[in-house]
């Protein structure tokens, strides 16, 4: 459907028609007639019937929150998680620092060092949730799909600076071993069946 029907503001053409609204009565007799008509139309009883019907039907929509929770979408941006590699169970984060750089509220701090094998290793990684606005830029910019947003939204704290440490965010190793790490399905994630779409690249063109 094209948007033209909505952009056309010319009310003389198209599907516009005038609503059938009675004129307001001007004289006393007309006003009196309107009052009588409204009084005996019984609209008050319609209202009473509607609420009574809902009470009898007992179609309750309450979610008793701490015991029951709504399912939330996979793209919901709640507290961050750090993923591990499926193949080797090691951390995905390569310490590139892009997330720290892009974070618009300046709440990610990352520190790295060169370890014994001449690999870059993350030594410190904290997110200050008191500042984080859950914009999702860090997850979007991460080249390794290492930092993602999880579904854990209950993060009340007794102080303003509420830091999330690297160890808290990282998928626990036993959960990883059990194959229970949930892959992020939101924007920027790997599309399903990506393996089948990989083409062999010849060494020489």
């Amino acid at each position: 459907m094209s948007l033209e029907a909505f952009n056309n503001r010319n009310v003389t053409e198209g599907d516009y028609f005038l609503c059938d609204i009675e004129d307001y009565p001007q004289d006393g007799w007309g006003k009196f007639k309107r009052v009588v008509k409204r009084t005996f139309r019984g609209e008050l009883f319609v209202g009473l019937w509607v609420v009574m019907r809902e009470m009898i039907r007992f179609d309750i929509h309450t979610i008793q929150y701490p015991q029951e929770k709504m399912p939330i979408g996979p793209r919901y941006r709640a507290v961050h998680q750090m993923k591990r590699l499926w193949e080797s169970d090691t951390e995905r984060c390569i310490g590139c620092g892009l997330c720290e750089k892009i974070c618009i509220s300046d709440c990610i701090r990352i520190d790295t060092r060169i370890d014994e094998n001449s690999r870059k290793e993350v030594t410190e990684y904290t997110i200050n949730l008191g500042r984080c606005i859950f914009c999702g830029y860090c997850a979007e910019v991460c080249p390794e799909l290492a930092i993602t947003h999880g579904g854990e939204y209950e993060n009340a704290s007794d102080q303003r600076e509420h830091f999330l440490l690297y160890e808290d965010m990282l998928t626990p190793i036993d959960k990883m071993k059990a194959g229970k790490q949930l892959e992020f399905e939101g924007f920027g994630s790997i599309t399903p069946h990506e393996d089948e779409r990989v083409k062999k690249t010849p060494l020489a063109y």
Binding site: V51, M52, E54, M55, D59, I60, H61, T62, Q64
Partner: peptide
Amino acid sequence: KVLAFMQRRL
């Protein structure tokens, strides 16, 4: 309770 039931709450 009555108000809640009429408004589909508990």
